[in-house]
Design a protein around this nucleic acid. Structure first.
Lengths: 144, 144
DNA sequence: AACGAGCTTGTTATAAAGTAACATTTGAGA
DNA sequence: TCTCAAATGTTACTTTATAACAAGCTCGTT
């Protein structure tokens, strides 16, 4: 099962960073993992409520925020949702493509391109962030 | 005054596209233009209410949606806001950098980089959109 | 002018997304 | 065991966004 494997990697990743993947956070991570693409916070909340009877928005948002900060999830602003980061241990930099229609996600290795962009941005007084770099588009299935 | 000039350009742009820059839409565009950076829908709504007494959310959202569709504004998902597009008539492709802290915005000419990215994305079954390409980061002032 | 089709705007109500503030629990170290 | 800090629970609320239907406007046709 892929999920278990990912959770294990996540666990190690958190230990390395000196942060704690608590039971709740793990549970939320598993819920997000159980979806093929983008998930919304309130969807996770509903799932969590099914599993433990009751849960309030802050519970989910805090866990999601933690997981994003830890680099285990990405926030997809364009869709108000979250996706799993499939390059947790990787050294190269990812650029995430999100289908604005269906929420499908693809992560490119964009290290070379980003090097160029960083330089351009630097000249304009900007530092492009290390995380959560994302562009929107349309996937093959949703193409007109 | 720069605003008047921009509005004129916007007018021409809309005529070319066969869409109408109505009084309301123009008014909303002017309000967005009056801000240096990112503006939020409800901020525009408040301004609009000051100017015309009453206005409801759909009024503003519809105008903003129109302006985005027409290419006159960009939506900044990361901040739930909108900015003016400073390259309305331009042929080259812009890539927008948004400071996640202060909302400052910079538009790069990223045509060459985007050519490369399009190819990579195409190989992965994705078509990167023509509009609203945006990355987040930190501007000089907000840098740690 | 009168009409109607289609776009634009007004209006009401409500849904969806996110957070502030404080109470309570838990767990690791003194 | 005690204590502090981090994590979670809880309540209430704010902010953001949209659905659904009514009314108005514009423009071409008769």
């Amino acid at each position: 099962m892929e999920i278990a494997c990912f959770i294990e990697a996540a666990d190690r990743h958190c230990q390395q960073q000196g942060v704690k993947l608590t039971a709740l956070r793990r549970q939320v991570l598993e819920l997000v993992l159980s979806y093929p693409g983008v998930v919304k916070a309130y969807q996770v909340l509903a799932d969590l409520q099914k599993q433990r009877g009751i849960a309030a928005p802050p519970t989910v948002y805090r866990a999601l925020d933690f997981l994003v900060a830890a680099g285990l999830l990405h926030k997809v602003d364009a869709l108000n949702g979250y996706i799993v980061c499939h390059h947790v241990g990787c050294s190269h930099e990812g650029l995430i493509l999100v289908c604005g229609d269906c929420g499908r996600v693809e992560e490119l290795d964009a290290t070379p391109v980003l090097d160029v962009l960083r330089q351009q941005a630097g000249a304009a007084g900007f530092a492009i962030s290390q995380q959560n770099l994302m562009l929107t588009g349309r996937c093959k299935e949703c193409a007109v």
